[in-house]
Design a protein around this nucleic acid. Structure first.
Length: 421
RNA sequence: GUGGGUGUAGCUCAAUUGGUCAGAGUGCCGGGUUGUGGCCCCGGAGGCUGAGGGUUCAAGUCCCUUCACUCACCCCA
């Protein structure tokens, strides 16, 4: 029989790693809460149209990475490649903008992108996603970035680089794009890499991101977005920088950072780790002031970011040994003891004690071996003999010290000892 | 989608120019006398050498195909 394996790029998160995910998510929830963000859980699938409209028809995500299919009712559906679109959809659908001026939301869960897997990149991966609606003040940009950095540091990340940029708005971008295209056609024609030649027509701003050396050297002299910002965007950007400085957040300005999704305006930012390899972006985000209305909602500004959980965990120093610990192992010897121990073990568990036993009536030696393997702090030796003498033995597995406990006080005194240690 | 690397016991890896090559360590199970774990010693289970085809007297070892994993490009978290 041929064995069935998981889908390519889809990973099982095994118990050892699951603990780490749990820790990271808990830190996120607690920190976000203190900034006033509340959790929203949105579906994993949406109508394809939602992503096409929000992310942009010509982006790589929409063009070739989405898991899109028709279901049995011929509805055109897509497994979400990111969370922002779904959250905005929910925000509009439930008229959340009417209930309050500012809405702060976050969600945690899996995203799907059909890319070629590599280090730090999977087809199903988890993101922690944060969105804030209704506020356009530069403080909010700084607040969100500050919260992100605070979270990443709290999760245990150290070697991080924060890069920010401004992408302008609907007023300044139309002036900038033609300037870039013009420059590329004049200066770069023929010397750009094939990908960039193509980008001139499809998405000229992306040329800025190219890593090919010849392209990079050409682009070094290209017009910069920040030189084209309208007075409003310029003021906003300088305020953001100023507030970040006030919050002691160090950053660098990357005028070539453009980000892959079409909807960003004004502030864009990215957090990179130096220890990850090629896929070094741990988190990224930005402002998207036109998107809510573009998706059918009111004119409400928004800003948000996403953190890649797998990438975050990948750059965590791997000291955390998530060894499973057991409080007590009940070593039952004999038929009668087995029967009573079964009740005892479950009684202990009901009291919140991590208790284990063995059902096969093995030798005491084998059972203690098992207790040791389970990383048990204590072993309770509980045989027919102990029942006879009405005294069970409690063995401390670290110190080897043993004490006797009256059998008829059994669950109670064990719970007491274990809770008080 | 494109390119490179890799695929041998649960895990990490060995197997001279194709010729007893199917191994080691670790892990797992058991034992080292009567009811006391970790160390040590001994024993045991466990592999159609990723899959399919070909060359050969003979193939983990060569060739082809395929699948998977992995790294990089592309793009992004």
């Amino acid at each position: 029989m041929e064995k069935i394996t998981a889908i390519r790029g889809f990973k099982d998160i095994l118990p050892e790693d699951s603990d780490t995910f749990w820790k990271v998510e808990t830190i996120a929830r607690n920190i976000f809460k203190s900034f006033g963000f509340r959790e929203i859980r949105v579906p994993i699938m949406e109508k394809t149209e939602l992503f096409q409209r929000s992310i942009g028809e010509t982006t790589d995500i929409v063009e070739k990475e989405m898991y899109t299919f028709s279901d049995r009712g011929n509805d055109n559906l897509t497994l979400r490649p990111e969370a922002t679109a779904s959250i905005i959809r929910a925000y509009i659908e439930h008229n959340m903008y009417a209930a309050e001026q500012i809405t702060k939301l976050f969600t945690i869960g899996p995203m799907f992108r059909r890319e070629r897997p590599q280090k730090g990149r999977f087809r199903q991966f988890n993101q922690i996603d944060v969105e804030m609606f209704g506020e356009d003040k530069p403080q909010s940009d700084a607040e969100v970035i500050f919260m992100l950095m605070y979270f990443l540091n709290s999760a245990g990340l150290n070697n991080l680089e924060l890069e920010i940029n401004s992408l302008g708005c609907g007023k300044c971008r139309p002036k900038f794009s033609p300037a870039v295209i013009d420059f590329l056609l004049k200066t770069g024609k023929g010397s750009l890499c094939p990908d960039c030649e193509r980008r001139i027509n499809t998405n000229p701003l992306r040329v800025f991101d190219c890593k090919v050396e010849t392209c990079a050297s050409i682009i070094a002299n290209a017009p910069k977005i920040i030189d084209f910002l309208c007075p409003e965007c310029e003021e906003h950007f300088s305020q953001v920088k100023s507030f970040l400085n006030d919050l002691s957040i160090s950053f660098s300005i990357n005028t070539r950072m453009v980000r892959g999704l079409d909807y960003y305006t004004k502030t864009a930012f990215e957090v990179k780790s130096t220890v990850l390899g090629a896929q070094n972006a741990v988190a990224g985000g930005g402002r998207y002031n036109g998107l809510v209305s573009f998706l059918g909602g009111p004119e409400v500004p928004g800003i948000g970011f996403a953190v890649g959980c797998e990438r975050l965990i990948a750059c965590l120093p791997d000291e955390n040994s998530n060894a499973f610990k057991t409080d007590i192992f009940i070593a039952a010897l004999g038929k009668q003891a087995q029967k009573k121990a079964f009740g005892l073990t479950n009684e202990l568990r009901r009291a919140g004690v991590i208790a284990e036993m063995d059902y096969s009536d093995k030798s005491l030696k084998a059972q203690l071996k098992k207790a040791d393997k389970l990383n048990s702090s204590f072993a309770c030796i509980f045989g027919d003999k102990e029942i006879e003498e009405k005294q069970a033995v409690l063995r401390n597995m670290h110190t080897k010290e043993q004490q006797t406990i009256p059998v008829d006080e059994l669950p109670k005194s064990l719970i007491k000892i274990l809770k008080e240690r």
